[in-house]
């Protein structure tokens, strides 16, 4: 069975560690990948694609040496494999123009300004992943324990995903 990954892209290793720590509750179900640059992120995404896994959520910094976060997100939006990935920009320095571009071209799902509240980041990740699994996964039970149980139950009820046997 394929796994749904979370990918965190952030050029400062200390900040990256903090992001991953904030999302630790999700890690048992959604393995977390870390990249320190957009280029490395692309490699990781390529590997996921080859393994047949999925990328559920990308949390991306904007200002990084080399390629910028928004460019990465736009490319992800234009690629079939990552189009459905929930995209989150986590940044303190993206200007208005970049942000607008991210919204329009990368269909950014969320914008979080640094510094962030850890509980809020986790909640946003849960919300976005819940949306992802509801839209794209068949076996919702597997994810219910760590995600938004109420929303998932509601979908199971409405869709009648399970029947007596």
């Amino acid at each position: 069975m394929s796994d749904i990954y979370i990918l965190c892209v952030e050029d400062e290793p200390e900040v990256l560690d903090v992001v991953v720590r904030d999302l630790a509750d999700l890690e048992d179900v959604f393995p977390i990948e870390m990249a320190v640059s957009a280029e490395e992120a692309r490699e990781i995404i390529q590997e996921m694609k080859e393994r047949g896994d999925k990328l559920g959520l990308a949390i991306c910094d904007h200002v990084m040496p080399g390629e910028k976060g928004v460019e990465l997100l736009i490319d992800m939006q234009n690629d079939e494999f990552t189009r459905r990935t929930r995209k989150l920009l986590l940044t303190g320095q993206a200007g208005l123009e970049d942000t607008v571009e991210a919204l329009n071209k990368a269909k950014l799902n969320r914008y979080i300004a640094k510094p962030w509240d850890p509980a809020e980041l986790l909640q946003i990740a849960i919300d976005e992943l819940t949306t992802f699994v509801i839209e794209h996964e068949k076996d919702l039970l597997r994810y219910m324990g760590v995600l938004d149980i109420k929303r998932i139950q509601e979908v199971i009820r409405e869709k009648g995903s399970f029947s007596d046997s």
């Binding site: 149980i149 109420k150 139950q153 509601e154 199971i156 009820r157 009648g160 995903s161 399970f162 029947s163 007596d164």
Partner: peptide, 19 residues
Amino acid sequence: MSNTATTAMMMTVAIPIAM
């Protein structure tokens, strides 16, 4: 109703309580 559909529905009632 089916046992399963009932469970899914009742869970939407019970979970907010449990939370």
